[in-house]
């Protein structure tokens, strides 16, 4: 069963000392599925991401990426993962191209393959013409585009997005949300998107509402609406996080 899932999380719990950050979290993401992880600040979203990216150790529960246990087969699992962190993680003093080449080097891609993929990803995001510019000269939206391009260079099966639209203007936000959904549809990419912005959810998306380290609801948008007996996901979210 797990081999058909891009991401499988089973009975995952995590605590910082006595403070429980995640409590018995389980869910799965299949290929071509966009899962939006909704939760207020302190819900446990960043902890979950740190566990999936192996920045933290999984002590209770299990995480599998494309069938690889993140704890036992860390490198195989991480090779399938693309990540866009909440903060910009590009090197400001390097050009767009240098940043992307650095990433391809870390993933062991040869020069010609790397150049080909960099061109392809940057062209898709209309950033190829700006490849020789320093990241410092780019605005927030363009930096995000470069980060999305970077996260896709090694052809991951799962893309983790940790509130990537924070600080972006409305057009940049919409463009980014649309682009990621396009990737999900056309390339069967799986996406786990942490957000607290309800308008970033598409009707065909799947949703997890995380609150105080526990899953309050999960399923398609329709499932969550039915569960909470609401007509809008915004109301469902409020109901689920206030009731706790």
């Amino acid at each position: 069963m797990s081999a058909t899932n891009t991401l499988l999380i089973e009975a995952l719990s995590f605590a910082y000392g006595d403070k429980k950050a995640l409590n018995n979290v389980s869910f799965a993401i299949r290929p071509g599925e966009c899962m939006v992880l909704l939760g207020p600040n302190g819900a446990g979203k960043s902890t979950l991401f740190s566990l999936i990216t192996r920045l933290y150790d999984t002590r209770q529960g299990r995480i599998e990426l494309c069938g690889f246990d993140i704890k036992k087969h860390t490198r195989h699992a991480l090779a399938k993962l693309g990540v866009v962190f909440q903060q910009t993680t590009l090197d400001m003093d390097l050009t767009v191209l240098q940043n992307l080449r650095y990433h391809t080097a870390l993933h062991g891609l040869g020069r010609s393959v790397a150049n080909q993929r960099i061109q392809q990803e940057l062209e898709r995001l209309n950033m190829y013409e700006r490849r020789h510019e320093k990241v410092r000269q780019l605005n927030g939206g363009h930096r995000r585009r470069v980060e999305i391009a970077r996260s896709l260079l090694h052809k991951p099966a799962l893309l983790l997005l940790d509130e990537p639209t924070v600080g972006l203007d409305v057009p940049s936000r919409h463009a980014l949300v649309e682009y990621v959904h396009q990737l999900v549809c056309e390339e069967q990419l799986s996406v786990l998107w942490a957000s607290h912005l309800i308008d970033e959810i598409y009707p065909e998306d799947h949703v997890i509402v995380l609150h105080k380290g526990q899953i309050r609801a999960k399923g398609s948008v329709a499932d969550v609406l039915a569960l909470t007996q609401t007509s809008q996901i915004k109301d469902a979210f409020t109901k689920l996080t206030e009731a706790a």
Binding site: T53, R54, L55, T74, R75, H76, L78, A79, L81, V83, F85, Q86, Q87, T88, T89, L90, D91, H103, L106, H107
Partner: peptide, 14 residues
């Protein structure tokens, strides 16, 4: 603190 260390730490190498 800035997060760029994470990029290094999540690449598939020991």
């Amino acid at each position: 603190e800035m997060g760029s260390m994470r990029v290094l730490m999540v690449c598939p190498l020991p």
